[in-house]
Design a protein around this nucleic acid. Structure first.
Lengths: 226, 226
DNA sequence: GCGCTGTTTTTACAGACTTTTACCCCGGCG
DNA sequence: CGCCGGGGTAAAAGTCTGTAAAAACAGCGC
């Protein structure tokens, strides 16, 4: 699913929102101040940014201006309820939407989807992903390993996509289950392990002899980047 | 500038908004009830529709559903302030934005521009569709594969059209049934599968040897974009 | 209404995919 | 050293999809 960048200085609230969005199928990364947020937004790794207006250091409006200076990516602003000026200025500066805060996570998710739905059909959105010898084309559900077409089943592709999107980060089994299998992880559920096993067999090993997908005991799995 | 369709039963308010928008550079047409609004929206003459949720006769939600059944045009909903459910349902049904009413005309204009900015980069909807080696002329109900006319039955054409419009995205069987067969999907109904099977036989394979329509286990089907 | 024809839906079975089960290995710990 | 919780993986069991073929339906000319 789409990669969302959440820029908000309120660590706790941002964490909650991120959790909800992840359960809802988004891949979420966090930034807790404007500077690093803008930088991440311009990295090109995200499909959309969610930007809090009220932040210490550079304000959300300023952050938006800087993002717009280097990218046309969709941006959704979070603002104190009823702050008309901010939101109008934001929209006129090129934000794609504005959501009053505090907000229902479900509404935020729905709005994200509404915006992504629009921009998904834009031509520059290629949904491509390259991690080491792996190339994934989400729109084509196509995966290559060292240039060879991989014959993956649907679930295997889903899993690999989630891992690849979060390459370099540990992804918990609960999250993998939610995103790739579409259901919460139950106790004694071994599906993830079994699928991972098949994926590994189809991929083979990295140049250094390790598996491209590492097991992190009791925590989850992690794809090795670059 | 862009043609806006404003659907609102409150004649006076709608007139005011229309005036403001016109001064702001939009071309505005009015509809004062859901029926005629939906009809106008589906005429293809408007770039975007603004839809009041509270209307006598068919509600805004129902109107949105009908518009979405036949078009993917951007729709912005006007709703009573704070009516969370309505707006969430609206967004999940495919509205592109929601504005609380009463609203500042200037905000409405800004939001319209934000949405149009997004959809401007989306491909034109002129009734023609090209997806990889497939070309569809919706108005003529004509389909070509690598330049060859395809002999499809009408249901097959419907299915292919829905899939092609959503190329690159998974379309659930329930949605395929609703859009192509005009009925909700019942348990044990295999019609979709059977039609898909015939379509695949008529299309043949892609250059890389895969079917142009991929099955996503338990989720639906996805047409591979160009 | 009747038979003819092309289409859609249902049925049936085979095959593919996913999930569960079972057993093995591994490392930590009393 | 034996027990325990986790993970790896083969194989069984369960579920979903592919597709041919039969049955049901819808027009149409008579």
């Amino acid at each position: 699913m789409a990669a969302v960048l959440l820029i908000d200085d309120d660590v706790e609230l941002a964490g909650m929102l991120a959790d909800y969005l992840r359960r809802d199928g988004f891949a979420v990364d966090l930034a807790h101040d404007g500077e690093s947020g803008v930088q991440a937004a311009l990295s090109g790794n995200f499909a959309i940014a969610v930007l809090d207006v009220m932040m210490p250091g550079i304000s959300g409006i300023e952050a938006l201006r800087r993002i717009r200076a280097g990218s046309r990516m969709p941006v959704l602003m979070l603002t104190a309820r009823g702050d008309d000026m901010d939101r109008i200025v934001g929209l006129e500066l090129g934000a794609d939407d504005y959501v009053p805060k505090p907000c229902l996570p479900r509404e935020l998710a729905a709005r994200l989807r509404a915006i992504l739905r629009r921009s998904a059909s834009a031509p520059q959105d290629n949904g491509e992903l390259a991690v080491g010898p792996l190339r994934l084309h989400a729109a084509q559900r196509r995966a290559e390993w060292r240039g060879q077409l991989l014959e993956l089943t649907s679930t295997e592709f889903n899993l690999l996509e989630v891992l690849a999107r979060n390459a370099g980060h540990i992804v918990g089994k609960d999250e993998l289950s939610a995103q790739a299998l579409g259901r919460p992880l139950a106790r004694y559920d071994r599906s993830i392990d079994v699928h991972l096993s098949s994926i590994r067999q189809k991929l083979g090993l990295l140049d250094d002899g390790r598996s491209p997908i590492q097991t992190v005991f009791r925590q989850g799995y992690q794809m090795i980047p670059g």
